[in-house]
Design a protein around this nucleic acid. Sequence first.
RNA 1: GGCUGGAUGGCAGAGUGGUCAUGCAGCGGACUGCAACUCCGUUAACGCCGGUUCGAUUCCGACUCCAGCCUCCA
Length: 463
Amino acid sequence: MLHIYDTLSKQKAPFQPIEPNRIKMYVCGVTVYDLCHIGHGRVMVSFDVITRYLRARGWDVTYVRNITDVDDKIIRRAGENGESTDQLTDRMIVAMHQDEASLSVLRPDIEPRATAFIGDIISMVETLIEKGFAYAADNGDVYYRVEKFDGYGKLTNRNIDDMRAGARVEVNAAKESPMDFVLWKSAKEGEVSWTSPWGEGRPGWHIECSAMSKCCLGDSFDIHGGGPDLPFPHHENEIAQSEAANGCSYANLWMHAGAVRVANEKMSKSLNNFFTIRDVLQVYNAEVVRYFLSSVHYRSAIDYSEDSLKDARAGLERFYQALRGVAIAADEGELGAQYEARFFEAMDDDFNTPRAFAVLFEIVTELNKASRDGSAEASQLAAVLKRLGGIIGLLQQDPEAFLQGEAKEGELDSDAIEALIVQRAEAKKARDFAESDRIRDELASQGVILKDSREGTSWFRES
RNA sequence: GGCUGGAUGGCAGAGUGGUCAUGCAGCGGACUGCAACUCCGUUAACGCCGGUUCGAUUCCGACUCCAGCCUCCA
């Protein structure tokens, strides 16, 4: 039985989809005004693992992840760049898709863009006005009347009085109350805009998700997910909008990924301490980065550092060293079901990937023993390992290719390495160990590590 | 100040009322011409103070510290 932690109820609960065998999931995606950083990558990888696992468990998952392609930051950045908002967002979306592909993140089933749903957004705002949950102000903005919605604050445990006392909300004379938030924003001169009953304007930040989730999944659906900074105000406001407009419960359960930190501080745009996915992939292998992001529980904070990436690299090398040279059996035999049960048990506990990894490492130990003993079980264990690893989106490369890696600039290419290995083999044959060690040291100084076995010498790059 | 999490061995990171996490690193051994890879063995931990209990790292309470949200941010 799968249990998932719900941000709203603040506990793990047995998961039960609304429709049997069908799961509808909406995850808040990226506002595309800049390149994705590793924090975005974490949300992508986390929900990718979750989706892959739900599917492996036999559910039919519809995974929707939106793209917010209209907003203040986009308008500002496009202005700075001297390009249109479309030019900017199209470029950033292409880049995002490339980054995802690098990290082996499968594309969501639907990726709605806010600007494609303006009509639906307008009609939802109209509904909210009709029902008294929203009002058009004199300045052309439309605001949500927060006090009118009884459940306001239920996701993040806040009440309106406390927040008003905090008084960090902007003072805006057009609002009835400082807590009210904007649903529709009137356009300033020269800004991208759409025609609406309230004049030229564009959607506020939260309404697009309410509208798009409704269009793609319906009024109620199973899982709503997102990054660590979204519960308030974004998801709180989505609940207020959707439940007021649709007159029914919105998402059944809320999942939020943990933050990526740098030097114990959250990686964020405002702190300017972020690394883009591209930055990171310049230095580390993409699968190593995915391993790093998926080996920690999805809700825990994770520290981005050279050491953690090195750890990830070492762990992944252990997997591929075990798989190297072992044929993948077509039939896993009894072993498959046995390890799968333990792996699923771990994942059923709120997608506990660290526990799942522990099971995978046990397979590695058994696999290494079987390989050493020349047992036929090796191929079966390799097959289980590769299949279960695939649920986390790992271990699908050819082991040799992963371990040998790509030659970086100034490094020996594989032909040169192979040539030196042949020379060394000749030296060894002549029992000229001084020469053979010299060659090995020379390769080691290039980051190439040799491994002798009965079948010959193999090599891999350390990094 | 309000609201969420968290504090586990050298590091990363699960978990449990009394016997094992797991990975990296360390130590001893096997393998090897010597190594690397691998295998076997092994060291070592539960923030602080109380309480419940035969027994608590695990349950309860106080405290300290850390992070996140409360303003745009995944």
